[in-house]
Design a protein around this nucleic acid. Structure first.
Lengths: 209, 209
DNA sequence: GTCTATAGGGCGATAGAC
DNA sequence: GTCTATCGCCCTATAGAC
């Protein structure tokens, strides 16, 4: 409450210990969720004492909030890095396929990304602010970028609804195949889904230029 | 382990107390998740003592497994009840719109359904068997029903991929709007999404009969 | 079968030495 | 700033009376 160098959550991470705590906390929170994570294990994983953890972060919720909030911003720039070069260049079908494949690539190759999504979804009842931060930073950015591209390069009756369909298909695919371990129950090759999705969208419009 | 009337998890719920425990456990587990739920509150919510809970279920995990497994089967029949009457009758666009609206109706009106999904997703790392049961009973059933309809009534190049797009769009919409509290950040009217989704699918095919 | 009471342990958070 | 040691609480699970 009465801290001098923070408003409501921790803003500046002064020392390198704070970084270690955030790294250790990430490991623990992303694999066990909020409630099942103990501050003892966070401290041990960070290589510091528990008291040091509490000297850098107000409490368990404060650490969790700071950590997820930072991760939301990191993942944002991770996914949308170098999305602007290619974006008004080639055939729309190729651009959209490349975009879809990059999203699915991140979701399948980096195991921490699925854990991150799982925690965001699982804790969205307890931490609605973090859930909304996720929507604002990641979902909305993806949506806006895609809308802009679809509007400028294709003649769609409703680019916004189409963007929803595009993103929704990919996210749901990741959820069922990876997060819910459904690969063997509902097999579907990535390329097959992407090709159908892109064809469905591009086929229902005319190239603009 | 050595129970006489159960193999590995509880099969038959002999008394009415077991029902009360399952009901109380549902309330608690669906709102707080597995780790943040205490057996004291489950007992209190069920109106029995904690010892009674442990006499009907082996431990916390056993109760959680029995409860979610039952819920998976309940929700299955809840969503797909009366899906077979209308299914080879009217215009495909109308059938698909009605189907989409029923899914979104359940997801928005019944608050327990979003909580149920949140727990399944959030605990899918700790309880992979429950996650797979969810995929087998709900996702796969939705997918198969839809595939069958799409194959029989429309001329699609890939009905299975199309079914993925259909379900994925609806589930992702529910996740962003309801589970992640994104209604105000990324507003989108339900009818608008459904109409675009159905048009995209029906427009890319020919009616079969 | 169901209760009350309690064992036994891990948890979040802090006091005080350095 | 960082540590060790500890407090007090609540947790899962069980023992024993009825």
């Amino acid at each position: 409450m009465g801290d001098t160098n923070s408003t409501s959550t921790e803003r500046q991470l002064s020392s390198e210990k704070a970084e270690a705590i955030l790294a250790g906390g990430m490991q623990e929170f992303l694999t066990h969720g909020f409630a099942a994570t103990s501050m003892d294990r966070v401290a041990k994983s960070a290589g510091v004492s528990k008291a040091t953890v509490y000297s850098h972060f107000q409490d368990k919720e404060g650490l969790f909030n700071a950590l997820i909030r930072r991760l939301v911003e990191e993942q944002f720039s991770l996914i949308f890095a170098s999305s602007d070069k290619e974006i008004q260049q080639a055939d729309p079908a190729i651009v959209l396929s490349a975009l879809a494949n990059r999203v699915l690539e991140v979701g399948t190759k980096d195991p921490q990304f699925i854990n991150f999504m799982r925690v965001i979804l699982g804790e969205s009842g307890r931490f609605p602010k973090l859930a909304r931060a996720f929507v604002r930073n990641i979902e909305k950015t993806a949506f806006n970028t895609l809308c802009q591209y679809l509007s400028s390069c294709l003649n769609l009756s409703d680019p916004e609804a189409t963007a929803r369909i595009f993103v929704g298909t990919l996210v749901h695919y990741l959820i069922v195949q990876e997060m819910l371990h459904g690969k063997d129950i509902l097999p579907m090759e990535r390329d097959r889904l992407v090709e159908n999705l892109v064809t469905l969208i591009v086929g229902n419009s005319a190239k603009k230029i």
